Amino acid sequence: MSAYALAHLRRAPVHDEVLEYLERIDATLAPFGGRFLVHGGTVEVLEGDWPGDVVILEFPDLATARAWYGSPAYQEIKPLRTRHLAGDVILVDGVEPAHDSSRMAARLRRNTAR
């Protein structure tokens, strides 16, 4: 099952170190089968407040996403971003292709009825 790294990064002036981070991050993803799905595209806020940009990376599974984040190659470049961009980063499992929200609701109803 695919897993995702999601970053909500606050906007900040462009810095040379952030540009270097961008130049180097793809090489850290390749050994882990990671790829960008979203990288700073236009954000249209429909509910709530979203000050900043979105980055979504896809990995084959959660263990691989964790291995990428903890890898020496990524840890080496991470400070180039974190020194200049505040934000939140999470890893999350995706859903199976046959995911059905109504079945999920039924399971939740059964579990809360006990």
Rank of each mutant, 00 (worst) to 15 (best):
Y69H: 13
D49C: 05
L22F: 09
P60T: 02
P13E: 08
H39C: 11
Y21T: 10
G52K: 03
T42E: 14
F32N: 01
L46S: 14
E76N: 13
F32T: 01
R83E: 11
V45W: 02
L46I: 13
R110K: 14
D88H: 15
P51R: 11
H84T: 01
H39G: 12
T42R: 15
L37R: 10
P13F: 00
M1E: 11
S2H: 13
V45K: 06
G70R: 06
T42L: 11
A67H: 00
L37G: 09
G94K: 03
N111F: 05
W50G: 06
V92A: 14
P51F: 05
A7V: 08
D93E: 15
D16A: 15
Y74S: 08
I56Y: 08
R103L: 14
R11Q: 04
G48A: 08
V92T: 14
L62Y: 13
L57F: 12
V14C: 00
D49G: 09
V18E: 04
L85W: 00
F36L: 03
V14R: 03
M1I: 12
L37S: 04
Y21N: 10
D88T: 15
Y74T: 08
M1A: 14
R83G: 15
I90N: 04
H39T: 09
L62F: 13
L91E: 06
E44A: 14
H15M: 07
L80W: 09
L85I: 14
L91S: 11
H84M: 00
D100H: 10
T28K: 03
A105Y: 00
P51Y: 06
W68E: 02
A105L: 07
A105V: 06
A7L: 15
M104D: 07
E58R: 08
R66I: 07
G40F: 06
R114M: 10
E23I: 00
A65T: 02
Y4C: 10
S102V: 09
R83F: 02
A86G: 13
A67M: 02
R11C: 01
F36G: 05
L108C: 00
Q75A: 13
G48T: 07
Q75D: 00
N111R: 12
D93L: 04
I90H: 08
L19W: 00
R10Q: 13
L108P: 00
I77T: 09
E76P: 10
W68C: 10
P79E: 10
H84F: 12
R103N: 05
V43S: 11
E17P: 07
F59K: 01
L6P: 03
S102M: 03
D88R: 14
